[in-house]
Design a protein around this nucleic acid. Structure first.
Lengths: 345, 345
DNA sequence: TGACAGAATGCTTACGTAAGCATATATTCG
DNA sequence: CGAATATATGCTTACGTAAGCATTCTGTCA
């Protein structure tokens, strides 16, 4: 019942408790302590208990930094992604979730301006990561090639321009948008307007190609209009131009859900009703697309599958350096919403 | 003009180029190379150039792992956050952005189930991070106290229960919700229903307190109804219960925007119009709250300020261990939307 | 010109762990 | 019961860098 009753309390993460301290306390060598934590089967149950008890009492926590230096593995995967955008946020969350299941962590490298990419990549190189996820169409060919030169696993995520340069995983942008176009044709659209986010983005290009080819095969033109950014605001603004485009098209296809949300609301603000006056489709399958206020017809990316494939590639045993980089394409699935006339069910 | 013309190309991140290799190539000692990269002013311009040239030629990149081991600083901040939720995604993005501006990175520890927290915290301890952000109401008092014991800077983010236990930064939940309640009173509401996300969350409690006290002072009751989760779906479902609550209240206050979106859409699906039939308020100020489809009256958190304060606390020189942990409270600002009758401007 | 301050650089060690090899103890079989 | 085998543990070193101290070099002034 004394006042200060915890002389060396078993709290965790004590000052600088090392495996050497634990070894001394347990009366074994540092090597044995190390073994208890990395390959326990190599040590007898008796000593194992002894060491674990001492470790717990001292509050020993293995130092991952030192371990990484020695073992040359960090158990950390880096991700280079744009700082903004609902889509990237959802992808990141999924990566973090799945990596955590494999006792790995995600180190985030985000950038706000496309020009920052170089700086970010330089900073990335300093960390000896077990793998690197490159997203964002703002990473150029040269930069990708340079990453490929590095000796650690890299995977490009939803970055069509990276195919053939580095291993990549992507939804089937072209086929997905083609399917949406086919659906529009099926429901009777003959005059379609396409809203892109930024024409420089390789995803944007693939998606537009899918739409224009499918529509073109039926003799339907598909004008491309650029919103300027992959944001709600850009979509909202561009809606005004759509309205000026008289007569109104039968349908508007948008490169990305987030932009489509803006288009949807912008059209409504301008007195154009979806789906009564025209149909609307998106792409990505963000959770908000299913919200009752939108109920948007869109192509749902199987984010969990995409992420799982990407992680597989990163963690798989190294491939022969001169073989062509793998390229995994995952099909998406259409969600039919009321923006193309489907009853929302 | 030979075919293989790049015997040792200046590509970056070559195999295992170390400062020792650079030293040999430049004809200096390893220490000098180290100085060139950490305290360049201590080395003469001539050698500096020589070393930098050699480093570039060999593709030398300093090894942060080794540096961290020696210097005991990682330049990495950890964040323990729930895997889901628009709010947390936006907070994370902001942290990553601001940290990047200070040449620091964000290591993400997300968890899907509240029960995973213990495992995550154990995993966190292994990394000798420069600081740690603890979010989520799922981190209990005991766990917070334990973190406080560790010798590295910790800050609780929007976690009222943490105040006094660890340094914390938070929006003024109580005052914010009180302001919203005052606004409702002002516009004539006399019968208010409160929708919480999860009554166990300390943010939920603070916010409800703000609402019920302010309303109670005017003799207005404020029934608490629990949605069960901080999600759109939970809000959508609970809307049905609101409708059964005849006569309809004048207004519904919701603990969080994301839930409020669901309530909004759920009410509409049930034939109840906002704001014609009842008013609706949210909390957080998510970007979607400003979307035309919602135009939700809500309390906007100054996320950038909150994050900046949190980073300041983490990076500030250590405080005396026995002093009371600081607690920064940042006021929010109301955004008046059409869900409480304000013209959307 | 010799001595001395100051700058520039080199040498050595330590950060905490894991892997390789050497050694000590337990187990098995002829 | 002794040798061979297996099991358990200890000893030593290396991962790549930064900091402390020792050393060399440059220039300045008496």
């Amino acid at each position: 019942m004394s006042l200060k009753s915890q002389p060396d309390s078993p709290r965790s993460t004590r000052k600088g408790v090392t495996s050497v301290d634990v070894a001394a306390a347990a009366g074994v060598s540092q090597a044995t302590v190390g073994r208890v934590f990395s390959s326990p089967e190599k040590v007898s149950p008796a000593t194992r208990d002894k060491v674990q008890e001492a470790a717990e009492r001292l509050g020993y926590v293995p130092n991952v930094i030192a371990r990484s230096l020695k073992s040359r593995r960090t158990n950390i995967i880096g991700a280079v992604v744009p700082a903004f955008g609902e889509y990237w946020q959802s992808v990141l969350t999924e990566f973090s979730r799945q990596l955590a299941n494999q006792d790995r962590q995600l180190l985030l490298f985000s950038f706000a301006e496309p020009g920052d990419v170089d700086g970010v990549l330089a900073s990335v190189a300093q960390y000896r990561l077990d793998g690197l996820v490159l997203s964002s169409a703002n990473i150029g060919q040269a930069q990708l090639a340079q990453m490929r030169e590095s000796d650690r696993p890299v995977v490009a995520f939803n970055h069509p321009a990276a195919v053939g340069v580095v291993p990549s995983v992507s939804v089937d942008n072209e086929a997905g948008m083609a399917e949406l176009a086919a659906h529009l044709i099926e429901v009777g659209c003959r005059d379609v307007l396409y809203i892109g986010g930024a024409s420089t983005a390789s995803t944007d290009q693939s998606r537009y190609r899918g739409a224009s080819q499918t529509l073109g095969n039926q003799g339907i033109a598909c004008t491309y209009l650029e919103a300027g950014a992959f944001t709600y605001e850009a979509g909202y603004k561009v809606a005004r131009q759509i309205v000026e485009h008289q007569p109104l098209p039968d349908a508007v296809m948008v490169s990305a859900d987030e932009v489509a949300f803006g288009v949807h609301d912008g059209l409504r603000a301008a007195g154009v009703d979806v789906p009564a006056d025209l149909f609307l489709t998106g792409f990505d399958g963000l959770s908000q697309s299913a919200w009752a206020g939108f109920d948007l017809t869109t192509l749902v990316q199987a984010t969990d599958v995409l992420v799982a494939r990407a992680i597989e590639i990163l963690l798989a045993p190294e491939q022969p350096a001169d073989s062509d980089p793998v390229s995994v394409v995952v099909p998406g699935t259409i969600r039919y919403g009321k923006t193309t006339g489907s009853g929302h069910g």
